[in-house]
Design a protein around this nucleic acid. Structure first.
Lengths: 238, 238
DNA sequence: ACCTGAACACCGTTCAAGT
DNA sequence: ACCTGAACACCGTTCAAGT
């Protein structure tokens, strides 16, 4: 191996950890993209701000990603990499439940991702791996091919949709949700209030009792899993 | 009323129907926005292209909407206006089913809408009216307050998520879906193919049999409705 | 009251150039 | 091989004018 001129002591290639600006590479760009998008949201996420965060000229990024769309696709695949794969050995129901909670947690940690998950680009390798594991869990548990497709479609739609609902309602805790509900109620004009009695009832109750997204998600998830269980037999030949 | 100089014969205020460019108003701007977004998608939808479509300078729009976000909020509310309201008199299950299909149809007609439905802005009046009707249908059918919230959350999450999955997969018919699946399969590298056997099985089967979104949606919807039915009693006191 | 034109502060991205 | 600076064709939006 040729000896190269380095201004620092040889540390076995680990010198990047200390250096102010390590040499850029695609993985570093994608990771920084996830961190930035988490911090500022998808609207504030621009090639220029990401470059600034990395201490680099905007055009330097284009040496490592073809364009912004490919950058976003790569970031989405990093989110997929965080999701627990279902393991048929644990039983299909606990395995699917765990995966669903894990996927939702990923979408909550990275709120910008849900709008890009099914984006136009080719699915990433982690996405393929994840769905292969999901389908494998179902097939190995005795689900028919068609049923496995139904279950995948049903569960993922629920998870995506729930994350989408939660993404844009900006409160996190039950207390915050109560305050938000109160604000919404107070924001409704008086004449409208009279026209939407049922809505007002719910908003008022939620303002008093709060709303827990985690509980709500898992309540719905259990309805789905029980529904899948109940109809498993009748779908066997479908 | 002062007599004004008009280059056309007096037609009792109905002259707009014939004129090339009728006087702009907010409703006309919103309607044109929906048509344009349907045609070009949300990426191609800009204030400038909408103004051009209306034969007007870009800044003319700002006399009728405060900014782009408010314009989008108004467009979303026009989509809500297309959704059938559930009628408890028909029985809660058929009523909810019809509303779910109607909402999904609206989201398919206007694919740009799903990403904006739960957007940060204040919900529109049609949105409020729609959710008031949904909650009213459930309460009048004997659902408890808490259960009505669960059901609303569950159903809407599924509908949104399904529309989101469908939005970005660009094929419409079962035949197209088969072709798309074949393309995806052929796009997977050989070594990856060996690593994702279950995924390949599904993609291959779908390429052969096709995939019908309408059937898939209603299959999952019936699982949800049956699950809600089954657990209705146990939720009574929840 | 409604519409326009020029301008500003941003975007993503191309290109030629630097080391 | 990797990074930079200037430039281009776009955005949404402000402002001062026009009628």
């Amino acid at each position: 191996m040729a000896h190269r001129p380095v201004p620092q002591a040889d540390d076995g290639g680990q010198q990047d950890a200390v250096r102010r600006r390590p040499r850029l590479n695609q993985a570093a760009v994608l990771r920084a993209g996830v961190v930035l998008a988490d911090a500022v949201g998808i609207d504030g996420f621009t090639m220029r701000t990401l470059a600034q965060e990395l201490g680099v000229a905007p055009m330097a990024l284009y040496k490592h990603v073809a364009n912004k769309q490919e950058l976003l696709d790569g970031m989405v695949d990093l989110v997929w990499a965080e999701v627990t794969e279902p393991d048929a050995a644990r039983g299909w129901k606990p395995a699917l439940r765990e995966r669903a909670v894990s996927l939702r947690n990923g979408l909550v940690r990275h709120r910008w991702a849900v709008g890009l998950m099914e984006a136009h680009g080719r699915p990433g390798l982690e996405n393929l791996k994840q769905h292969n594991a999901l389908l494998g869990c179902l097939r190995e548990s005795g689900f028919s091919f068609r049923t496995a497709v139904h279950v995948t479609s049903l569960l993922d739609a629920y998870i995506y949709g729930f994350a989408l609902q939660q993404k844009t309602l900006s409160f996190e805790t039950p207390e915050e949700s109560g305050q938000a509900a109160a604000a919404t109620r107070d924001g409704i004009p008086d004449d409208a209030a009279a026209r939407y009695p049922y809505l007002l009832e719910v908003v008022g109750e939620l303002a008093a009792e709060g709303y827990d997204y985690d509980v709500e998600f898992e309540t719905g998830l259990d309805v789905l899993l029980d529904g899948i269980d109940a109809l498993r037999a009748s779908w066997r030949n479908g």
